[in-house]
């Protein structure tokens, strides 16, 4: 029974970066996308850049997929399961939160630049900073995952 639970948690950890990253991207892109649609009611041109900005929180799903493939290189065993769970869930939560918050940053950027187009570039800076934290979580998940046992020799 204990082995079954451990293996289940290991598999959950393996898929967590993708699932949690995707949840974050869904929420982030939805919020930013809704703001972009609202802004389109007020502006006469430049719709494309708003749609582009609203897609920024999708990168977290890609980072999650890469982390998942990296973790998937090893077999899920009772030895590797705790490491898979810890790294998978922690990196997944970080990616999810960054995507949600990045969506809020993008929505604010769209809302502000709608009435003041000259600040469009600068208004995206907060979203870029949030993206930076997602990259940290992603890179260090890859680095730390090298220590999880079970990699094929």
């Amino acid at each position: 029974m204990e082995e079954f639970v451990l293996l289940t948690l290991g598999w959950a950890g393996l898929y967590a970066p993708t699932a949690l990253g995707a949840i974050g991207s869904i929420l982030g892109c939805t919020r930013a996308g809704q703001a972009a649609c609202g802004a389109m009611l007020e502006i006469e041109s430049g719709y494309g850049r708003y749609v582009g900005v609203s897609a920024l929180p999708s990168s977290q799903t890609i980072y999650g997929i890469v982390v998942m493939f990296t973790l998937n290189a090893r077999e899920v065993t009772t030895e590797s399961a705790p490491g898979l769970l810890a790294i998978g869930v922690m990196s997944g939560v970080a990616l999810m939160m960054s995507a949600i918050m990045q969506g809020a940053c993008c929505a604010s950027a769209i809302n502000v630049s709608k009435s003041k187009p000259e600040v469009f570039g600068l208004s995206i800076a907060p979203a870029a900073i949030v993206e930076g934290f997602a990259v940290f979580a992603f890179v260090f998940a890859l680095v730390v995952s090298a220590g999880i046992p079970g990699l094929p020799q």
Binding site: R31, A32, Q34, A35, A36, C37, G38, A39, L41, E42, A107, I110, N111, K114, S115, K116
Partner: peptide, 12 residues
């Protein structure tokens, strides 16, 4: 409730 579309559609 969140109103992303509505708030963004209102002029500053």
């Amino acid at each position: 409730n969140s109103y992303y579309t509505l708030v963004a559609s209102l002029p500053a």
